[in-house]
């Protein structure tokens, strides 16, 4: 999973596979970070309090 693992090899298989994996993890975590960050900003600025 990481280059310090015993099985790691600097080859196409590892690049593609783990490249895809880290890419996906980064997209998901960036997406969630954006959501949470924006929510904090929105909440602080008083949005969504009495929408009903």
């Amino acid at each position: 999973m990481l280059p310090n693992c015993f099985e790691w090899a600097w080859d196409a298989g590892h690049f593609l596979f783990f490249g895809g994996m880290w890419y996906t993890i980064i997209i998901l975590s960036l997406g969630m970070t954006w959501c949470i960050f924006k929510t904090i900003m929105d909440t602080v600025s008083g949005k969504g309090g009495d929408h009903h």
């Binding site: 997406g31 954006w34 959501c35 924006k38 929510t39 929105d42 008083g46 949005k47 969504g48 309090g49």
Partner: peptide
């Protein structure tokens, strides 16, 4: 809860 309401809205956006 305003935080959850906003979070739900923002998650829908993304």
């Amino acid at each position: 809860v305003p935080f959850f309401h906003n979070l739900s809205h923002n998650m829908h956006t993304a």
